[in-house]
Each structure stands twice: as C-alpha cells, then as structure tokens.
Amino acid sequence: MEDFHWTKLFNPEFYITMEVGGIPIGIYMVLFIVFAETGLFAGFFLPGDSLLFLSGIYSRELVQTFFFLPSDFSNVTILSLLIAAAATLGNTFGYWFGSRSGQFLYKKEDSFFFKKKYLIESQLFFEKHGGKAIIYARFLPIVRTFVPIIAGIVHMKKTKFMFYNILSSLMWSFFLVFAGHYLYGMFLDQFNIDLKKHIEKIILILIAVTTFPLVMKAIRSKKSNTNTAA
C-alpha cells in the first residue's frame, strides 16, 4: 500500500483486489461492505451497485478464496448468493436497529456519517411505496441504507419485511453480479475490450445511472415547493 491514497476508499476495485500479507481478502471486504451499506446508517457512502457489478467481473478470483470451481456459472451463482445473504443480514440488522432505537435518529445532529435529510427522504419514500419500497430501495444509493431502519421504526410486520428483504436481496445481487460477469465476457469476446482496463469509466457510468432517479426526484421536489410557494 505504498501508493495508497484516501480516494481509493471510494473505488470498489480497491476492496475487491485487497490483500493482507499476500492473502486475498476481497470476498470478505465485499460481504462486509454490502452488510454495512444496507445495515449500518453510516455505510451510505460506501460503494454499492458498482461494487456488485465489478464483483461479477472478478467473480472467479473472489470465489476461489474459498474453493476452486471450474464453472463460471457456478462461481457467479455462489457469489450472488453470498452477497444476497450479506444484504439480507444487513437489512435485518437495520430493521432491528430501527425497531429498538431508531426514533433517536430524528433528534440526532448531522455529522459526516449521518444526514437527517436522508432519513426523512427515506421515510417519505417508504410511506409512498409501502413494503415494495424495500425492493425499490435496493437499487437506489443512500435510500437502501435507511429504508430498513424506517421499516423497523414503524414496526412493519416481521414476516412481510423478511419476504421483501430476501426477495430484494436476491434480485439486487443476481442482477448486478451476473450483469458484470457476462457483460465483461461479451465485450471481451465480441469487441476485444477488457472492461478491467476501464474500471474508472464503468464506476462513473454506474454512479450516474444509479443517482439519476434521486437527482430527478430532487428536481421535481424543488419545482413542487417553488410552485406551492408561488
């Protein structure tokens, strides 16, 4: 880590290829980040969608930390299931935290790791979409961190929450991990383009795509407030 710079903390490839004493720990970092981003309100700034997409590209290297599988499909499937499990546990912890002590967050002062506006926006999102908000939130940065906490605060029925929790975790992980893996193969085979050499561009594109709905929502909300004031 001689050339380490703090900006690498926002680069998902940094975690995926991380080693300690020559031992690869990328899979552990991926699973921890998925858990933290979906279960700890301080994890909203961590890479989510881009991490899963790139994990699909590095699926063989990540899974081989545990065991060797010659089949690409098996590697991607197992990786997706592991990530889905981490995401499910993360949401479950967020729900538990919200049900036990979430109310104090509304009185908590803003800090680098916590912004009250995100909590309020997630509450409005949850109130609008109900249980399906848990599925929608999986694909929205920041919102996916706070929605399970909101579900716990309002004491959403546990069986209903777990149904949407597991379903959304599987949809999110399988879609992004499989997309990363097979798009990588398609670009390499058909266009001779190695996506691993264009990681920064991929991250920027994914950030733009995943944050677009939030930006449009903010713009519509601003216009609505302006019209109301007028």
Rank of each mutant, 00 (worst) to 15 (best):
F4V: 06
H5D: 12
T7M: 15
P12G: 01
Y15T: 01
M18Q: 09
I23K: 05
I23Q: 03
P24V: 04
P24M: 05
I25H: 01
I25A: 03
I27P: 04
F32N: 06
I33K: 07
I33S: 00
F35D: 01
A36C: 09
E37P: 02
T38M: 04
T38E: 10
F41H: 05
F41Y: 07
A42F: 13
G43R: 01
G43N: 07
L46G: 00
D49I: 14
S50K: 06
L52D: 10
F53A: 02
F53G: 00
I57T: 03
Y58P: 00
Y58M: 02
L62A: 00
Q64R: 13
T65S: 10
F67H: 09
D72S: 14
F73A: 10
S74K: 06
N75T: 08
N75Y: 08
V76Q: 14
I78R: 03
S80P: 03
I83N: 08
A87H: 06
A87M: 04
T88S: 14
G90W: 04
G90D: 10
T92M: 12
T92F: 14
R100G: 07
L105M: 12
K108W: 03
E109M: 05
D110A: 12
D110M: 11
S111P: 05
F113V: 04
F114Y: 12
K115W: 10
E121N: 14
E121K: 15
S122C: 06
Q123H: 10
F125R: 06
E127I: 02
E127M: 11
H129Q: 05
G130V: 02
K132I: 13
K132V: 14
I134W: 04
I135T: 13
I135F: 15
I135E: 10
Y136T: 00
Y136H: 00
A137V: 14
R138L: 03
L140D: 08
V143W: 15
F146E: 08
F146T: 05
I149V: 13
I149L: 15
I150T: 11
G152Q: 05
I153H: 07
I153A: 01
M156N: 03
T159Q: 09
K160L: 13
F161I: 08
Y164G: 05
Y164W: 15
N165F: 02
L167H: 07
L170P: 03
M171F: 14
W172L: 14
S173H: 14
V177M: 07
F178Q: 00
A179N: 01
Y182T: 09
Q190F: 12
F191E: 01
F191I: 00
I193H: 00
K197N: 03
K201E: 10
I202H: 01
I202A: 01
I202M: 04
I203L: 07
I203C: 00
L204T: 04
L204Y: 04
I205V: 13
A208K: 01
T210Y: 15
F212S: 09
F212P: 00
P213G: 03
P213K: 06
M216V: 11
A218Y: 11
A218R: 09
I219P: 01
I219L: 14
I219H: 02
K222L: 12
S224A: 14
T226H: 15
T226A: 15
A229R: 12
A229Q: 10
